[in-house]
């Protein structure tokens, strides 16, 4: 409904042009949780550079699990196991390889969560966090980065007067933009969004969506969403997942207007899910 103001659907823009270069691809990726549950089954999917890729599907289909493979979030909990590979271009690193440090991965692939989760610190320190844990202490550099990131997250004008206030004093939408600024501060190559607007009101949602469309100029974006209109509004590519399988992956306009698979069409048209 909100998207009707911008019906162009980001996905329609690169229609005729050849597909952009790959930023990453998952190859035969399977994932097992510690309790033995196999949440992903042999997923092979490209991620195009400077494009927004949306992951859609009914609850429990594995889309969040898939997203969290890209920054090795599953390593935080014992017993989880990956199979296959997620290759990051241009250097062809397999993010899931045993000899790749998950911390290195997270320095290249940043994440914004479902619920805004600002740290119990000032707005400034929230944004500077990623740089501080990397050992940056130069005040000028930090100042510049904090301002640049807050501008990038369209939050600068609202908070520049109160950078020393606690981040949790902001409104929900502002908190989420603060979390986006935090994720941007370290210049990640890929930005993961895990249902970033599900805890926000429609106006805050619209501003985050606008921001995502803006951000893809500087970073490759993967977004999990429950909201199909949102996928249609913000993404260039869409993957439909069901029960841990990738059912269909294509340009967003193709997925929404002439999907190749019956299951996708049923889900898109609301006959299922």
């Amino acid at each position: 409904m909100l998207g009707s103001a911008r019906p162009g659907a980001a996905g329609l823009t690169p229609d005729a042009s050849p597909p952009p270069p790959l930023k990453a691809e998952s190859r035969d990726l399977s994932f097992h949780y510690g309790n033995g549950f196999k949440a992903l089954n042999a997923i092979t999917m490209p991620v195009h550079e400077h494009r927004v890729t949306a992951l859609i599907g009914p609850s429990g289909c594995g889309k969040s699990t898939f997203l969290r493979c890209f920054n090795r979030m599953h390593d935080l909990y014992p017993g989880n196991r990956y199979e296959g590979a997620i290759v990051l271009h241009p250097d062809n690193t397999n993010l899931l390889a045993d000899d790749v440090d998950p911390i290195e991965v997270r320095m290249r692939v940043s994440m914004v969560f479902q619920k805004p989760n600002p740290f119990p610190k000032s707005i400034y320190e929230n944004v500077a966090y990623g740089l501080r844990v990397r050992g940056v202490t130069n005040k000028n550099h930090l100042d510049d980065k904090v301002e640049e990131s807050l501008r990038g997250a369209a939050l600068w004008d609202e908070v520049k007067q109160r950078l020393n206030e606690v981040g949790s004093n902001l409104s929900g939408g502002q908190q989420q933009r603060l979390c986006i600024a935090r994720a941007l501060a370290t210049d990640p190559e890929i930005l993961l969004f895990d249902e970033p607007t599900s805890a926000l009101d429609p106006i805050a949602t619209a501003s985050i969506e606008e921001l995502i469309s803006e951000l893809k100029k500087r970073v490759t974006i993967l977004i999990v969403t429950h909201n199909m209109q949102q996928a249609a509004r913000v993404s260039d590519y869409t993957a439909y997942m069901y029960l841990g399988e990738l059912i269909e992956f294509d340009r967003t306009d193709t997925i929404f207007f002439k999907p190749g698979r019956k299951e996708t069409e049923d889900y898109i048209t609301g006959r299922f899910g």
Partner: peptide, 17 residues
């Protein structure tokens, strides 16, 4: 909340950090 820890880990922080 775990969400706060995940946010920190996602920024590339170590356990001690």
């Amino acid at each position: 909340p775990m969400a706060l820890r995940e946010g920190s880990f996602a920024m590339g922080a170590t356990r001690l950090q």
